[in-house]
Design a protein around this nucleic acid. Structure first.
Lengths: 182, 182
DNA sequence: CTTACCATGTAAGGCGTTACATGATTCA
DNA sequence: TGAATCATGTAACGCCTTACATGGTAAG
């Protein structure tokens, strides 16, 4: 069964930016990467241990006072593995929208139900777009740095995407109104 | 552990359009739904049997000559279950793009590597957009029918999305050229 | 003093893909 | 006659989330 797991590369990638704890990696997944990737502690911590066994990261005890804390760093070997993967073409770009599924089968609930789904989606998009715009604004001050430049590209991708979603929402609602009144 | 499985609703939804075989459902997943949903035989056939045990679909032997063939139909109970789910707000709209992951960590391979990823992505988008445009053209002749109207909405969503992806590719490549020459 | 946050980890179990297994028909 | 397509299904196994378990610190 093939290697479909990406978490190791995600964690190596984060550590290529700077050493950090597992907890911090989770936060990055929930903020910077949240638009296009995710992951839970249940997959982060075991993967981190696996990476250490494979010599791709090193642990360093950074507990202060009584608070447990493990700082992870990427090794040279880890960097090589990461680079190899980064150079390979991306294999899977996948979108899974329940909203579209419900729209596709929407005949069963009628245009009013469909419209409600679109309006909920619209609200969510506005929220996401707002967050991404803030990210972009902040990032703008750090564009001297290559890491931030790459980050910026993905943020711009998100902004473009959500803007087009919102346009679609508008048009879709107009279409539905037309269809309803016929 | 919660019910995260959606395949039952997908199959019920397809059968709400018309009775069909498991093989045909797989084809729909690979064509009409391919932009926003997927699934393999390994999850289709077992789910179909489960749905029958639950009284949500019925089987009908439609073998002709020696070729095995099972036609599935949705039951009244199945329709009720489907409608209930359709009325609920969508819970998860998820995008997982390896391309964006490789871009995010792109510092490790430099702007040339990043640019290659974008160009590959661009080509893929052009292909997808071409397919979606053909779908839209064909669908245009069937817009009298509500099922096709809902299908049309999702196709328009895909078209908008890929068009914005292509715009982003163009802009991202310009940015990268600027960054490279500095 | 209590809530939010920092911090690490395991166990159970669901979900879904890949690979395998089988066999008929249609078309070039 | 060989390749593509129609057609159904199972087994192994990997991956990931949810829920649980634990405990310290900072701020109000």
């Amino acid at each position: 069964m093939a290697n479909t797991k990406k978490m190791d590369f995600v964690l190596l990638g984060l550590l290529s930016h700077e050493p950090m704890t597992g907890y911090e990696m989770k936060k990055r997944l929930d903020t910077s990467l949240r638009f296009f990737w995710g992951g839970s502690y249940g997959s982060i911590y075991p993967t981190l241990n696996q990476l250490e066994r494979e010599g791709k990261v090193t642990k360093e005890n950074a507990s202060s006072n009584g608070r447990e804390k493990i700082l992870y760093s990427i090794t040279d070997h880890g960097k090589i593995i990461l680079k190899e993967w980064l150079k390979e073409p991306a294999k899977k770009d996948e979108l899974r929208y329940e909203t579209l599924l419900k729209l596709f089968f929407g005949k069963e609930i009628g245009f009013n139900g469909t419209k409600e789904h679109i309006e909920r989606f619209e609200e969510k998009c506005r929220g996401e777009l707002h967050i991404l715009n803030m990210f972009a604004e902040n990032l703008f001050h750090y564009l001297g740095d290559d890491t931030h430049k790459h980050y910026y590209l993905t943020v711009q991708f998100g902004i473009k995407t959500y803007e087009s979603y919102l346009e679609w929402c508008k048009e879709a609602k107009i279409l539905i109104e037309e269809w309803k009144n016929k």
